[in-house]
Nucleic acid binder design. Structure first.
Length: 188
DNA sequence: CCCTGATTCGC
DNA sequence: GCGAATCAGG
């Protein structure tokens, strides 16, 4: 798909709006990747937006060795699929998603936003926590339980997430991300 | 790991 | 001009 004036206008607008390349790519639709968006943005010479976002001074260190590309005669369409796999649904748990006002970012945020629409009213919680029946105390922890603390460690109601976690991982999928993601990506 | 934008370069 | 691959930073 080529860059019609319409699409370019939308691209400009969204980019100025501050959306990330992947988000814009999502809006423009299939066939448009974030790379395509970034590439176009550069060609249009409209990189620097309002805010610096993060982008480092872009110091060219070692650009050497990039001269590689796919080529095998065949130029068959890779049939861009939609990998968008929905997170696993743990054992007897109610459908909870609840991100409410979580920061989130980029494509993930967009994806979640799409799925939310209706699932949100099911669980107004702040975290997808387990019902009391599944709560576990310090003693219930083992190599496969999420050790994400919930509540005030000094109060009686304190407990651990306890959801199943992959072997070797200290937290369940949800909390594993939070462990070093989300909250304050920026800072340092 | 996931996400950002930046750059290069075959097409 | 286009954008995948790659790079570099967080």
């Amino acid at each position: 798909m080529g860059w019609t004036e319409e699409r370019v206008e939308l691209l400009k607008k969204l980019w100025m709006e501050g959306l990330s390349a992947s988000q814009i790519a999502g809006v423009l639709g299939e066939g448009v990747t974030r790379n395509a968006v970034i590439g176009k943005v550069h060609r249009l010479k409209l990189s620097g937006r309002s805010k610096p976002a993060s982008a480092a001074p872009r110091v060219r260190t070692t650009p050497r060795t990039p001269a590689r590309r796919i080529s095998t005669g065949a130029s068959a369409a890779p049939s861009a699929p939609r990998p968008m796999g929905t997170g696993g649904s743990s054992a007897g748990m109610v459908k909870q998603r609840t991100m409410v006002s979580a920061p989130m970012q980029g494509a993930t945020a967009l994806k979640i936003a799409e799925e939310m629409e209706q699932e949100i009213e099911i669980a107004p919680q702040a975290e997808p926590f387990v019902p009391e029946a599944n709560r576990i105390s310090l003693l219930g922890l083992n190599e496969h339980t999420c050790k994400w603390p919930i509540g005030d460690p000094l109060s009686a109601g304190f407990y651990f997430c306890g959801q199943h976690s992959e072997d070797g991982k200290p937290y369940c999928e949800f909390h594993a991300r939070r462990a070093y993601h989300q909250v304050d990506r920026k800072k340092r």
